[in-house]
Design a protein around this nucleic acid. Structure first.
Length: 573
RNA sequence: GGCCCCGUCGUCUAGCGGCUAGGACGCGACCCUUUCAAGGUUGAGGUGCGGGUUCGAUUCCCGCCGGGGUCACCA
């Protein structure tokens, strides 16, 4: 049996899942599915200071929400009997921090082969060397110490290290060119000496990314590595490592010797990057940037004016004055509401909160740097899983067009069966709009029929329901709308409202159809058959305070007899 | 700056020596309309520049220009 195709997505748990990471995961997933292979998740938590368990959990659940399910990796119970990672191959653990004994064994192995050595320079010393190089306009490359020889075990250095001297471990790069073969970019050649002796184990004993990734991909049977182009220049390091290494008989004990089997070099496919529309990197800092600009534009100059309790004056000034400063997500959300902006979505969770459909996000994402060819543009996960191929991955960076994403989402959300919309919208409301989720079933269903045809996202749908949620007594009418639709023409609008109230009161039931018929009859009696707007707009203003709401009959029915009539009469004064 | 990658409408892209250079989002116009959306019809809009190769270049080669990535004890 030929070995199966194995792809992996290997996030470092230092934050939320970035939308670009989601695309990488999606492509890895699709490629594995396409070839009947396995998709694996590995958590690269070798940075002690920045990694967190919570972040890993968040990333996992974001992936699950997107429908990017893994065969191998951490266990995640999705409920309903679905448990991701349950059927994993026995190649774990999937958290690198739990694999240190393996990395250490392979470091010993490299020592023995004369392909790694302890290095004792301090950070400060290295920094000084870098500065000196920069001053001479040269690129800094770590100079291999004179006593280190390719292929010779560095006994003296190892003794110093064993004696407890602080050190890192560096890899002995070969003095030959390294050729990287990439499935999308072709052959990329790096001249000998271009890459210096990089660190493979940090002073804290944890492996660096370069080392852990190579060991794990080999041990875990990864056959295809798909990642962003920002990793292209890392690849010669990985290839050099693969060429230097052979498998240990016992992955946790170098003293038992090597099997002599060389490490494989997986197939690489580097994908184009995704940027903002203005060409800048998509960064979570963009959210702070947008909020900061809105605050500035609103002329808010101190914390008191901003009026977000979690922000003190000092914090306000720090945040406004430092483009790198970030507010906690919740606080940032409050600021955004205060200055009435939507924060740009950067992380998967942002899109979820904004009410985007996961299948739409996947569809849209798969068009960034990949294309099924021809005019095909709208498709689902099943299509991706059966059509995705490396040959169609592009080489040019893409810009993330939120407007187009929104158009895709609008299409999906407005064309699905209303029952489905109701189910999914309710699930969304449970997380992000509790008062709506609490609506009685029939009312919620009616709300869906009213709102689905004209919403772009679930958030949008929820916003359109705001008139329903506000207390009748707290409803404020927009002055401009009142002027235009109620008071103008000597109160023509008010007259309409008055007469409609009478007609409505006479109605035996308050079903949308009944209301609709009543309003049409009223329009006909007024000779306004073709211009329902003359009737609907005054009612809308009186009922909702503004000029935009679902169709007027539904707006009335949604409020119900008592509230609708109450609001209308209140508007009449 | 060194090294590396890239270059089709504003944006995402199709094209893999011969096409009126196609689609989608956005934009304009018109239609529909009970507000706002959505929808329908329709229009404008692109091969970065210069050399080659070829009967013929969007497509192949070179140079230029432009954009991006990377130069950590972060991944």
């Amino acid at each position: 049996m030929s070995s199966p195709i194995v792809t992996r997505f290997a996030p470092s748990p230092t934050g939320h899942l970035h939308i670009g990471g989601a695309r990488t995961a999606l492509f890895c997933w699709a490629f594995a599915k396409r070839h009947g292979g396995r998709f694996m998740i590995r958590i690269e938590d070798t940075d002690q200071a920045r990694s967190s368990e919570a972040s890993a959990r968040g990333i996992l659940s974001d992936l699950a929400w997107l429908g990017i399910h893994w065969n191998d990796g951490p266990r995640l119970d999705l409920g309903g009997g679905v448990v991701l990672g349950e059927q994993s191959r026995a190649v774990g653990p999937y958290f690198q921090a739990q694999r240190r004994d393996i990395y250490d064994a392979y470091i010993e192995h490299l020592f023995a082969m004369g392909r790694a050595y302890p290095a004792f320079e301090t950070n400060e010393e290295l920094e000084a060397l870098r500065k000196a190089a920069a001053a001479k306009k040269q690129t800094f490359k770590y100079p291999r110490p004179a006593d280190v020889k390719f292929g010779e075990a560095p006994a003296a250095r190892i003794a110093r290290a064993k004696a407890g001297e602080p050190h890192v471990v560096r890899f002995v790069m070969p003095d030959t060119p390294v050729i990287v073969t990439d499935e999308v970019l072709g052959e990329v050649k790096y001249a000998a000496g271009e890459v210096d002796d990089f660190v493979i184990r940090k002073a804290d004993g944890f492996p660096t990314y370069h080392f852990a990734v190579v060991i794990d991909d080999e041990l875990m049977g990864v056959t295809h590595i798909m990642r962003g182009q920002e990793h292209l220049n890392n690849t010669p390091r990985h290839v050099a490592l693969q060429q230097a290494l052979t498998r240990l008989k016992d992955d946790r004990d170098a003293t038992k010797g090597s099997t002599g089997a060389r490490f494989r070099t997986p197939l690489y496919a580097h994908m184009p990057l995704i940027f903002n529309m203005d060409g800048s990197k998509m960064s979570k800092r963009d959210k702070d940037k947008a909020a900061r600009e809105a605050v500035k534009k609103a002329g808010i100059k101190d914390a008191a004016t901003l009026g977000v309790s979690a922000i003190s004056d000092g914090q306000f000034n720090d945040w406004m004055g430092d483009p790198t400063r970030q507010l906690p997500g919740e606080v940032l959300g409050q600021v955004a509401r205060r200055v009435k902006i939507n924060l740009p979505e950067i992380e998967v969770e942002d899109f979820k909160k904004a009410g985007y459909l996961p299948e739409v996000i996947n569809n849209f994402l798969s068009l960034l740097g990949w294309s099924p060819g021809g005019d095909v543009e709208k498709f689902d996960m099943a299509f991706l899983a059966s059509h995705f191929d490396l040959a169609r991955i592009g080489k040019t960076n893409a810009r993330f067009d939120r407007v187009k994403l929104l158009a895709f989402n609008t299409d999906a959300v407005t064309t699905m069966p209303v029952e489905r919309f109701a189910d999914r919208f309710r699930a969304w409301c449970a997380d992000y709009a509790a008062p709506l989720a609490a609506l009685p079933g029939p009312l919620f269903t009616m709300l869906c029929t009213a709102v689905q045809p004209r919403c772009k996202t679930f958030k949008d749908a929820a916003d359109q329901a705001a008139f329903l949620l506000v207390d009748d007594a707290a409803l404020t009418l927009d002055p401009k709308s009142v002027e235009k639709h109620l008071r103008a023409d000597n109160g023509a609008g008010l007259g309409v409202v008055r007469e409609v109230v009478a007609a409505l009161k006479a109605l035996p039931s308050f079903e949308p159809a009944t209301i609709h018929a009543a309003i049409e009859a009223f329009a006909a009696s007024k000779g306004l058959a073709g211009q329902l707007g003359k009737i609907a707009q005054p009612l809308r203003v009186a009922l909702t305070g503004g000029t935009v709401s679902p169709p007027i009959d539904l707006t009335i029915a949604l409020l119900g007899r008592e509230r609708a009539l109450g609001r209308l009469e209140r508007a009449l004064g």
